[in-house]
């Protein structure tokens, strides 16, 4: 797991595209601006697409951590509302 101060975490390994991004987006909705979330996702397609979509929404990608179990954890800081 990420050695990073996170306020919230969400696991999107149980859903497939495009619900991966949707589930991450729904989880981020609960956060305040500036809070940090860890998003656990499967390697491959989610790692290709989810970070890009999250960036497009105006959030800040802090780090992508390889969990060495076929999953990665994306550490994101929530951006401005309606950014």
């Amino acid at each position: 797991m990420p050695e990073y101060p996170v306020d919230e975490s969400v696991d999107i390994t149980d859903v497939v595209c495009p619900v991966t991004f949707v589930k991450a987006k729904v989880a981020m909705e609960e956060l305040e601006e500036g809070q940090v979330i860890s998003i656990r996702m499967n390697e491959g397609e989610p790692v290709q697409n989810v970070p890009r979509s999250i960036k497009d929404e105006g959030h800040q990608i802090l780090k992508l951590i390889d969990n060495k179990d076929g999953t990665c954890s994306l550490i994101v800081r929530k951006g401005r509302e309606d950014a």
Binding site: V15, P18, V19, F21, V22, K25, V26, S53
Partner: peptide, 12 residues
């Protein structure tokens, strides 16, 4: 999860 899937095209 079912609602996220059902409304995914909206939420995106």
């Amino acid at each position: 999860n079912a609602q996220m899937e059902r409304y995914s095209r909206h939420i995106i």
